[in-house]
Amino acid sequence: MLLLKGLRKSFRGFTLYVEELEIPDNSYVVLLGPSGSGKTTLLRLIAGLETPDAGAVYIDGRDVTKSPVWQRDVGIVFQNYALYPHLTVFDNIAMPLKNRKLPKEEIAKRVRHIAEILGIQNQLEKYPHQLSGGQQQRVALARALVKEPRVLLLDEPLSNIDARLRLEVRGFLKSLQRRLGTTVIHVTHDQEEAMALGDLLVVINNGRIEEAGPPSQLYSRPRSLFVFNFLGLSNVLPASRLGLGGDELIGFRPEDVVVGEGRYTGKVARVEYLGPYKLLEIVFNDVVIKARVPPHLAVDEGAVVRFDVEKDKILRFPS
């Protein structure tokens, strides 16, 4: 189990503060937040590549705050992979083991084993520049995993992958984690990627953790307006606009809007055809409401439609 307590790190004009964050074993954790929110900084604090100004990091109850990276039992995959260009794939993967002076046969066995898991057993004699980006990433993963770390840290691992391959690599990462049973902490700014992968989602904004929880909970029952907005398309408006009581803000997803019948009448300002569904923008009471409708529903821009919002899906946020 990984535990962060009172962790603080300040740069000029930026402070990261984590009051408490507990990361259970054997889970796929995604750190999600907009760019510049402090995700990389948090990851580097866990890795030991940055020293915190205050607070502590515990791995399995052991305080590792003062320990250097290599004593922390973490594996790191850097955003640009950071392979050693002068070494073969085999020697790249073997580096952490050789450094511990394990016996030669033991090293070869473990390198082969992890290379097989990652599907790069045929590339072991090549140099990094002879590999594709995806293969380089697997080498970087192998190097991080060969020492069997408690925690594997991935900083935006899909950002340098070809868009076509991204889904495939995403699936691979998740199944790899399931197979090896390590804890993975995966940083991304892509909410779709985050929801697809995470057992636990940690949403971070401007140096603070907004909310942590399973993706489904954060998507449909977030406590924070930021999380609600960040995790998908959303409608946010004062409750009074829909004639609902209270002076709070209300929020609901476009798919929670029913079009064709209901209490409200509005004018369709825009129709976007998106394949599996259509997105409408309905002007009602001086606000724009996004609604998701089946693709075959015939509505034209300028049409006047009736609609309603599913009551039990409406979230309330203090304004």
Binding site: V69, N80, Y84
Partner: peptide, 27 residues
């Protein structure tokens, strides 16, 4: 030298003199 390669070396437990000869000097 790319900072990330230096950090990777650190993560692999290479320090000081050994890191210099194993990583820096070749690069």
């Amino acid at each position: 030298l790319p900072r990330s390669v230096e950090e990777a070396a650190m993560a692999d437990g290479l320090v000081g003199v050994r890191k210099f000869f194993a990583i820096d000097l070749p690069l």
